[in-house]
Design a protein around this nucleic acid. Structure first.
Lengths: 118, 118
DNA sequence: TCTCTGGATCGACGATGGTCGATATACGCG
DNA sequence: CGCGTATATCGACCATCGTCGATCCAGAGA
């Protein structure tokens, strides 16, 4: 496969906005699940710190220190982000590097947009 | 003032994406608060049903029936959306009509977008 | 193999959130 | 004013979430 199954053709008609056609229960559950992953200040900052990093990657040690939270807590948040498809993790020797999945963020952004972009 | 204070110049540099510059604590709290209001399937469907309505308005009675939830629950969700600035309410005789605030959704969408739009 | 370090998992605890029934409030109409 | 209807608020209950310390697992190097 070229890309992981970011879009389920069964539940997701396309990437159109929710404000134009009423959302079904399935689609609402799916979108809310991804939004829940996003709706936490720590996770937003994690995404932001990973994205701001040149190369687009950051290891856990880089993320733990500036946030003033325990390492298990950071690890937990990264797991939530990973399971929502918002980041990927990759082992590099002793360290684990996390990277954004830009398409995932873009999909959510498009679902919330009122006016059509691009 | 021409527009309500949707953007706080103190905490919000502009409407740029979170993935380009690391988010501060204030900004992360602010954005996560708005995302929490969005991160519920019932509220997403409410927004969607209001937006899909021609005229952009819907009264509570229109929203309660199709969702198979009690009227107090719907009222609670609408309050959450209103306090997050995502909808406005307006009394019309006996009924209360809710309408979207497109700029609010657009702002959140822009904050999540990776690529710059428009 | 032993040890050290980075990260993940576990179990527990307090806080927050979604839902309901009961009740209160607002409006229109006799 | 009194009644009926449309919404909002209240109080309670159960589920989910964010956080922690303790512990476990994986890789690197001696």
């Amino acid at each position: 496969m070229t890309t992981p199954a970011l879009i389920d053709p069964q539940t997701q008609t396309c990437c159109s906005s929710l404000v134009h056609v009423p959302l079904g229960a399935r689609q609402a559950d799916d979108l809310s699940h991804r939004l829940k992953a996003l709706a936490d200040p720590t996770r937003l900052r994690l995404l932001s710190m990973i994205g701001a990093r040149q190369g687009g990657e950051a290891c856990v040690c880089d993320l733990t220190e500036p946030l003033d939270l325990s390492q298990p807590t950071i690890s937990h948040h990264l797991k939530v982000l990973r399971e929502a498809g918002l980041v990927t993790s990759r082992r590099r020797g002793t360290w684990v590097h996390y990277a954004l999945v830009p398409e995932a963020l873009e999909r959510i952004s498009a679902a919330l947009a009122v006016t059509e972009h691009r």
